[in-house]
Amino acid sequence: MKKILVAEDSSTMRSLIVATLEAMDDFDLFEAANGFEALRILPREKVDLLITDINMPDINGLELLSFVRTNPLYEETPVIIVSTEGSVRDREKGLKLGANAYLVKPFKPEELQQMVAGLLN
């Protein structure tokens, strides 16, 4: 079963993403409410996909992405960054740092599902 880590500080948004993924396939889903939790889960579980919000307190999504991309253990792990419409610059930075795809909030469930399917296959 594929493992997916969802890092997002808004609990509703996180549960919506999780619900969207659950409706799609049998995944092993891990949830992180902030960068700290994500960092705790990453070394423990070899995840197949990371979905992270950019704007999180303390450790933001870009920092998390950079961590993943600079570590040989995870450098190949696909990453989807989630951001708001306004934060174009942050999104561009994310893509430059090696994000595989980005999602703009609010998004349609199918959009996320297609993206996940594309990256996992």
């Binding site: 960068g35 700290f36 960092l39 303390d58 920092e63 950079s66 961590f67 600079t70 570590n71």
Partner: peptide, 28 residues
């Protein structure tokens, strides 16, 4: 790896007493 979250949170808190944390970049 075992204790980083509490230790980092404590450090961040301590830095905030004396200034502002602008960014925290984790690395391996």
């Amino acid at each position: 790896l075992m204790t980083f979250d509490t230790e980092l949170a404590a450090l961040t808190e301590a830095v905030k007493q004396n200034g502002e944390v602008i960014s925290t970049l984790p690395g391996s």
